[in-house]
Amino acid sequence: MKKLKHSILLFLIMMIFWILFTSTDIQELIIGVITSLIIVSMMNKLQPVLGDVKLNPKSIIYSIIYIFVFLKELIKSNVDVALRVINPKLPINPGIVKVKTKLKSPLGRAILANSITLTPGTLTVEMKEEYFYIHWIDVTSENIEGATKSIVSNFEKYLEVIFG
């Protein structure tokens, strides 16, 4: 069941990329379907990472909300970094802190780590099972709970619904 879902999602993603690359001409579509089927059948021995995605209406709505939350954080982080760089005194207060995540699926953890890297003042340095080590440009709380609350929990509540 998990493998079937993984294969269908992989096929859909590859078809979307093929259409973006070429066009919706009928000959090119046939070539794309054949190529995608061959690649999916070659890939079915790997770990089914896409099988963790839940496909119900609530998770789809949450993923659309997640994209907007992510874009908002991305713009905020850029303005933050720009202000720090322009300032002649260079106001930084860096350190590496440890946070804990509740997510179980590997794909969810990877997306969480990427989102942390692109949000204000944080950069994922190392992942060990459920602990992330994060380089923080302006350390405000030094224990695990405070850092988890201010870095991770903003994204986690959406990713928990999407990946379970």
Binding site: I75, N78, R84, I92, P94, L123, H135
Partner: peptide
């Protein structure tokens, strides 16, 4: 920026957007 990690922060975020 003064060291590798801070350089990486600026380099990744600002160049992505």
């Amino acid at each position: 920026m003064p060291d590798v990690y801070n350089r990486m922060q600026a380099g990744t975020k600002a160049t992505t957007l």
